[in-house]
Design a protein around this nucleic acid. Structure first.
Lengths: 215, 215
DNA sequence: TTGAAATTCAAACGCACGTTTGAATTTCAA
DNA sequence: TTGAAATTCAAACGTGCGTTTGAATTTCAA
């Protein structure tokens, strides 16, 4: 038997995940979240201490979901050849383009964090051990080699983490007139392949590019 | 002799360029702009019809500045070999990393438009003929060839327009602890070279990547 | 069943935003 | 010099935000 209070709490969490993923932390309002959850405005303060506390809970759910999905898990990616690992990593980032499920929403939330990092996220990143972030850096290190300096790794990791973001943010631009692209799984597959190819040949294939940023 | 009213108008414009470039359209407040311009709040409504009218004037100044600077001019880039044109295009996008001048502010304003497009910008893009945007698409077409389909051109143009943006947005992340990179001209040069190399070999060098997205 | 604790609720609070008001001041041609 | 137009100004308006209030209601162990 589920208690009524827990049902309200869960409804708030579900609504928050939906609204935060669509509008980001600042763009989402507690009025919209509580309306969607059929709850009172004060319920957020009561159950989570405020908007920020609710968002912290949403982020924790996000990290948990990725940990359980094993999609961005560093160990999982390590077992694959670099290019294939890269393709899967990008494929995951592009998920919100063609899917509307919970995992796509969580990916969108992380995308908003790239856009404008919240203090809550910042705190959680240092206190928790976020697999998705270390996965990106590990991936870059595999391409650049152990001898790569900090600058090369940091710049390339920053770059890699934004590659999916570009298209998630620009998805409306792609799907609407005048382009009218159909953002289905096939499209996302082609996109992930293109980006994986780009990064692979660009970073490991030429060697010259690596030298440029390594000074 | 400059009239006092014109001086207020110009002070508002200068302050608006500074604040909009730092905070974006939504993040900027008329109170902050008028404070910086030593003007009254109502002055914006009086001189520009409101915040939106002021921003429209700022965007027009931005387009004018780029047209006069010749940096993103499509014809200018056409005269250069593709890779060199690409390098200059990226170098321009990365300008705000190491410079604080007016052109860097204008580039930042365009960066905010990538982040969240305003209606004002949307209108101006269709009414004016913006050289910076057509320059990016022209550049992509030179790499993909005349036979490239709409999808490849559109996706790659979207991708190209975001490459500088990633680092302008992430500049704080790069310059602060724990990375503490010095974002000087040399750094920006290395970055532009790396990205130009990446795009060159990725798109024109392999050919396979092009096929993937062309279906 | 009872009563203290937990939960819900409508309403209001305090704040920041862009805008408007209407009087005061300045400008400048007549 | 004069007076209508242009410009400035302090103050207030209306709206949306996150949060708080305090009473009403529900829950649930004793």
């Amino acid at each position: 038997m589920i208690r009524a209070a827990d049902r309200t709490r869960q409804a708030l969490l579900d609504a928050a995940i939906a609204v935060f993923s669509e509008k980001g932390y600042e763009g989402a309002s507690v009025r919209e979240i509580t309306r969607e959850a059929h709850a009172n405005q004060a319920a957020i303060t009561y159950h989570f201490g405020g908007k920020e506390g609710l968002y912290r809970e949403v982020l924790l759910a996000t990290f948990r979901a990725f940990k359980e999905s094993n999609l961005l898990d560093a160990e999982k990616l390590d077992a694959l050849p670099p290019k294939e690992a890269l393709r899967l990593f990008l494929r995951q980032q592009l998920l919100p383009l063609c899917r509307r499920g919970q995992l796509a929403r969580f990916t969108r939330i992380l995308n908003w964090e790239i856009l404008q990092r919240t203090e809550v996220f910042q705190e959680l990143v240092v206190s928790q051990n976020i697999s998705a972030i270390s996965a990106a850096e590990g991936l870059v290190r595999r391409f650049l080699g152990e001898a790569a300096d900090r600058e090369a790794v940091a710049v390339t990791t920053l770059w890699l983490m934004h590659q999916g973001f570009i298209f998630v943010r620009g998805s409306e631009h792609l799907s609407r007139a005048p382009l009218n692209f159909k953002l289905d799984d096939a499209f996302v597959d082609r996109l992930a392949n293109l980006l994986a190819e780009l990064l692979t040949v660009g970073l490991s294939g030429t060697g010259r590019a690596r030298g440029e940023i390594c000074r």
